[in-house]
Design a protein around this nucleic acid. Structure first.
Lengths: 351, 351
DNA sequence: CTGAAAGCGCTAACAA
DNA sequence: TTGTTAGCGCTTTCAG
């Protein structure tokens, strides 16, 4: 029998890492000097700084962000509370955001509510981690959550949605303008029977896109759009298409409140058969996710300028830190219509 | 006019939060008692614990994970290093992983390499945040990175790839078995000219799937598969389809190393025209992403059991913490073929 | 410009 | 079982 006794190990394996004290010793300076060398524009002599930095480099030392955060209240982390990761729009947001933060030396901490967990419980949790800001992407937001956001001790920014009360900062594509632009596009190209596929009931994005769409449609003297719901999902879009095509007077132009539903609508129309896109029906989405450009769908859509939106979010985060009263502000960035085959534009030639 | 003078506020707004000392005072106990009340199975009287907990609840107190982490070396965070977020397979992984961790009271910290940043530089960065483990999902991994992983002071787990040297723990679908299963499927159903669309050159997933596929094809006495590359992207898949169809003897069964390429292949075949799926050509992918089930594609694919894989990853993370030598181990979980229309299965009736 | 000392919020030894 | 005492690794007054 081998010597297989249970070795008693300290639970803490004591990670082998150099501390500021080590660097100080190596550079022949005090610990504070090391700290100052890593603090932007701290009062330290160029020579000392150089000595510290080279010693640190030799040892592979980096200040421990957690210990630093304990004092400065800046952990270098930004929380991202995300609910609908299944919508392909959000992974792109996530990636763009993570990269943008990474470029500024910050990291993103991702919080996704568990099964039946309310979003509210995540906010204090995130805050307890000392994050410098919280970005929330969630189609719906309970009023309790809104209050929690407004009173949070760190800047909270709503991404891709707004709040009517305006008490929480938000960055959003101009959804109303987008909806109106699509309506005008339909009207100018001779479409006569518009339809709207709504997303989740409480979602401000869906609401505003619909509002703009209705306004634009009426301004162009078209009949008010037929309305069905699609839950912001592919299957919901398919279902919506089935409903619309089963009507006495099916629409000749469908605007779905987001791309994933629009793709579902396209597949739904195909499945029902009889009517074709774009000959009989036009379909337009919103977001411009990658799949919208795939030949099978070739979907006309209103592109959200993700980069611009992320940039504005970071700007808001920054200004909330520096400016004193930090009044909540809502930033609307414009998007633009990308015409593709689902509204009759010819397919581009190159693959 | 209201009293609207510019209040001079300290740049550090001194977040209003209660500390263990506050709770201790409120409950009439020592600070350590508070600590113990929040430490699982610490020696504390039931009554004391109850008093502390109720006081804490009243004040809305939660232990600061950062301060705790400074001592325990357990920050409650797990790092996720991710490179290809564009592949729809990974957002699902990300979400599943975040949720699974969240259920265990841990959080995921996401690290995505910036523009030209090498993956290597992220590892020490993650470690400096005191994460309890690092999970890496990256198709390719430089040898320098491999060494860094092997020597990291915290458990590092490769997700969805393996390392031949076996020096780093890994969780992976049994790619070779998957490739072989697809080959057998082709052979049994009378396909005669197989083709393989490879992903990124250095990716172990593509390599192993190909290896199994070739083995299975040869075992079934079929000719060695035609081979083209697709870069693991949709466009790459389209391109690959064009190449394959331009050959003198186009294949009658294509296996693409992942779903996103397979979708590209399908669209590529459509665009070229002339040959149809599944009548003339069969197409099979790997992953089973959501879009594979969409009617437009209806793609037969080898499903990776994400939940199982995540569970194994967490198990490995746990055991690396508790078990002493923590030898690196590779876990292969089985997947299974999902037959759909791209190989002749009838479309399910319900939407 | 620099170092010594205090302490961020918490846990883990040690006695009591 | 409890409270007291040291720190975790770092920043930040405060003297010098």
């Amino acid at each position: 029998m081998p010597t297989d006794f249970k070795r008693k190990v300290p639970r803490k394996p004591k990670i082998e890492r150099f501390t500021a004290a080590d660097v100080a010793r190596a550079a022949g300076v005090s610990i504070s000097a090391v700290s100052r060398a890593f603090t932007p524009n701290a009062s330290i002599a160029k020579a000392t700084k150089a000595r510290v930095l080279s010693a640190a480099d030799r040892l592979g030392y980096h200040p421990n962000p957690l210990a630093r955060g304990l004092i400065t209240q800046r952990s270098g982390m930004v929380a991202l509370l995300m609910t609908e990761v299944t919508n392909p729009f959000y992974p792109t947001v996530l990636e763009t955001f993570a990269r943008a933060l990474s470029d500024r030396g910050k990291q993103v901490m991702l919080f996704t509510p568990a099964e039946d967990e309310p979003l509210e419980s995540l906010l204090p949790q995130a805050i307890s981690y000392g994050v410098e800001g919280v970005v929330i992407t969630s189609a719906t937001l309970s009023s309790k959550m809104q209050a929690a956001c407004a009173n949070a001790p760190v800047p909270v920014i709503l991404f891709n949605r707004t709040l009517d009360c305006g008490e929480v900062s938000a960055v959003c594509c101009d959804n109303e303008a987008g909806g109106r632009a699509i309506a005008q596009f339909f009207a100018q190209r001779g479409r006569r029977r518009p339809a709207f596929v709504a997303g989740l009931p409480g979602a401000s994005t869906s609401l505003h896109r619909e509002r703009g769409f209705i306004a634009g449609v009426l301004e162009a003297s078209l009949p008010a759009p037929i309305r069905v719901e699609g839950q912001f999902t592919f299957d919901g879009g398919m279902q919506a298409a089935a409903e619309l095509l089963a009507m006495d007077q099916p629409p000749d132009a469908i605007f779905a409140a987001n791309d994933i539903m629009a793709l579902g609508v396209l597949d739904g129309i195909r499945r029902v058969g009889g009517l074709g896109v774009p000959d009989d029906i036009w379909v337009v989405g919103f977001d411009d996710i990658a799949a919208a450009a795939w030949p099978s769908f070739d979907l006309t859509t209103f592109r959200q300028p993700i980069n611009r939106m992320i940039a504005e979010t970071l700007r808001l985060l920054d200004s909330a830190e520096t400016e004193v009263p930090a009044l909540p502000s809502t930033v609307l960035v414009p998007g633009r219509l990308i015409e593709r085959g689902s509204t009759g534009a010819p397919l581009p030639l190159t693959p």
